[in-house]
Design a protein around this nucleic acid. Sequence first.
RNA 1: UAACCUGUAGUGUAGUGGUUAGCAUUCAAGACUUUGAAUCUUGGGGCAUAGGUUCAAAUCCUAUCAGGUUAUCCA
Length: 561
Amino acid sequence: MSEEKKSLNFLEQIIEEDLANGFDKSDLRFRFPPEPNGYLHIGHASSICLNFGLGLKYNAPVNLRFDDTNPAKEEQEYVDAIKNDIKWLGFEWANELYSSDYFQQLYDWAILLIKSGKAYVDDQSSEEIAKQKGTPTEPGTNSPNRDRPIEENLELFEKMKNGAFEEGSHILRAKIDMASPNMLMRDPIIYRVLKKAHHRTGTDWNIYPMYDWAHGESDYIEGISHSLCTLEFKPHRKLYDWLLDQIYDGGIRPKQREFARRNLSYTVMSKRKLLQLVEEGHVNGWDDPRMPTISGLRRRGYTPAAIRKFSEVAGIAKRDNVTDVALLEFCVKDDLNKTAPRVMAVLNPVKLVITNYPEGEEEWLEAENNPEDEHAGSRKVPFSRELYIEREDFREEANKKFFRLTLNKEVRLKNAYIIKGESVIKDEHGDIKEIHCSYDPKSKSGSGTEESKRKVKGTLHWVSIQHAVKAEVRMYDRLFSDEAPDGHKDKDFKEFINPNSLVVNKNAFVEPGLQEAKPGDRFQFQRLGYFCVDLDSSHEHLIFNRTVPLRDSWAKIEKKG
RNA sequence: UAACCUGUAGUGUAGUGGUUAGCAUUCAAGACUUUGAAUCUUGGGGCAUAGGUUCAAAUCCUAUCAGGUUAUCCA
């Protein structure tokens, strides 16, 4: 019940203004209109959160409309993936609709356009038409077919529809203004011949409407009040309005407004480039955990809540942006910190022997599942004489800043005992094979003894060798080493691919409880980061993906020297 | 170089004539800590530039500069 008013973004301000001017709140209606020709990415997620967020805020319906006017590129597979992603993000659409649902209506309206002398059939080649289009600085010239009689246009359009013409031979154009400074107003194409089977309408149609003719009209049919799209459609607005003018017949008149697309640092966002990464094998598919796709983020271990939070804090505006991926990473860490169970896993194991711990003995120690969540409870983890700890957690000699295990120094084993480094055993190369230490039997965690309350500077995670489960851990890092890989005019974005974006570790050990972990489960490997169980994981072969590492202050201290 | 759009800490944003220009993240320092995590405290860092209008300008006007978008029978 806080009094502070949340500031409105510019789109909400537009809506508030409309409401203040008498627009009925119950007429508010939004839509998310993907073309089913690829997978959704984090940029789409922002748009989804924006549109569905407005729906929630104003209690207005939000339609999911597939903009499927180009059968050459669209497939059912994408429709399914898109629906799945939106649901996963936690949103519900009011209606599942398709531009293709309106093909007949669009066609009827096109006839109307022709009859009112606002559209004509052009049978020139695309090259000729392009030539007549002019350039942004020079006006275009009229097509010789511009004044074709209405009857003839009607006849030709009918033939286009019936399949009498080949692809590329005839188009229907709106008759607007070949001299307009806005290139889109220079008699834009609204129908083309396409003899392709459509994923929904099959071979019913030989002609398909262009985006501009389908989008605004679909908005109108659905009663969309605010049609929100990205900035590159700004020049289309004039055409959107013009086309609507021709057929408007009362009711809610949709308005298009534009916002800046969300870009993320250290990645690329264009469908074309993402497709290239997939096709050329730089990643393992659209859902590779390094991809900025929703499916990739999901597989990486991101939560819907984290992505929604990111969209919220990143906000929405009209200026070009490259949002720091660190903000996205903060959002997952923030969410996972509250929700992910803590477990122990050793990624780079070295053997630790507790010389004064009885051989053959084991005990099951109490371990808190999540200190941030009092309802998370606790579990038992097995402890024994021989453990694995991280190789980086031991040094024979170290300065005072090193809080971890060294010879003759004490550290605590998390949830267990305080130990003291005694000696090391090395192999023939001089590498450490085993670390021997002693433990203080009275220092058991939570036992309440004086010894257990002793303060030691460092705490290490560990797993009991005899109980540990071997696992594969995939360490993911940024796909690109450059902040804006596609922002260099003279260089291809692929030159910046990070060769170490995936490091596979097949020799990690995790505590035995994780044997039962299922794909999608998320954990915090204490002191290391957040990890999730990969789709390919099985009971016999556990695979974890690193979602994001924990902040590592020690790495910074060490770097400074 | 035409039309249109956009310039507020490193990044993302709020600010709508009167604010010590706010928030988040990042960065730095410290406290706390059985995660060198989290948490807490503190700090650094910004209105593209130049002129106007006004008692008062990030906000209004003008110019300049910078960046972006637009010429697919794509969306």
